[in-house]
């Protein structure tokens, strides 16, 4: 009996927290615009007039992308540290943080996304540098 009451009490708390969170979403503007999320949700068959739910999806997506990006950033930093250890003179060039396909595919693999996309050789300033450093 007592346990049951506790459960209902916590449930009320959860409900309150959930509705509070949803209400807070009205003030929070995610980086991903609502229109974009709405468009793609609509394409997948999702139907809901509630803006808060669309915001929730936007926040979820933003968090997902941010998580992937921070993982990729860690990969990037780790690689740069290794490169810098090998070659001091390239330090100037590699100082900036670049989102590369390598790091991204490593980060995405942890999230269950298998990226086997060949990077475009022309679009990366560091592609040539990487290959030479790998050769050595």
């Amino acid at each position: 009996m007592n346990h049951n009451q506790q459960a209902t009490g916590s449930r009320h708390d959860d409900d309150a927290a959930l509705s509070e969170f949803l209400a807070s979403l009205m003030e929070y503007t995610p980086t991903i615009p609502d229109e974009l999320v709405e468009h793609y949700l609509g394409k997948s068959g999702f139907q809901c007039p509630d803006v808060r739910l669309i915001r929730l999806v936007a926040v979820a997506t933003q968090k997902f992308v941010a998580d992937v990006a921070s993982d990729a950033l860690q990969h990037c930093k780790a690689r740069q540290a290794a490169v810098v250890k090998d070659k001091r003179d390239k330090q100037q060039k590699d100082k900036r943080l670049i989102l590369t396909m390598d790091d991204l595919s490593k980060a995405l693999r942890e999230y269950g996304v298998n990226v086997k996309h060949q990077e475009y050789f022309a679009d990366s300033p560091s592609t040539g540098v990487d290959s030479t450093s790998r050769e050595e």
Binding site: Y40, V65, A72, M101, L104, D123
Partner: peptide, 25 residues
């Protein structure tokens, strides 16, 4: 914290994000 993006990486990540939304929908 990223400063520069590879075009292909950006496209891939955008594609993954879009798929995430669609999958959720």
């Amino acid at each position: 914290g990223f400063q520069i993006f590879q075009q292909s990486a950006l496209e891939t990540l955008a594609d993954v994000a879009v798929r995430y939304v669609q999958n959720m929908g």
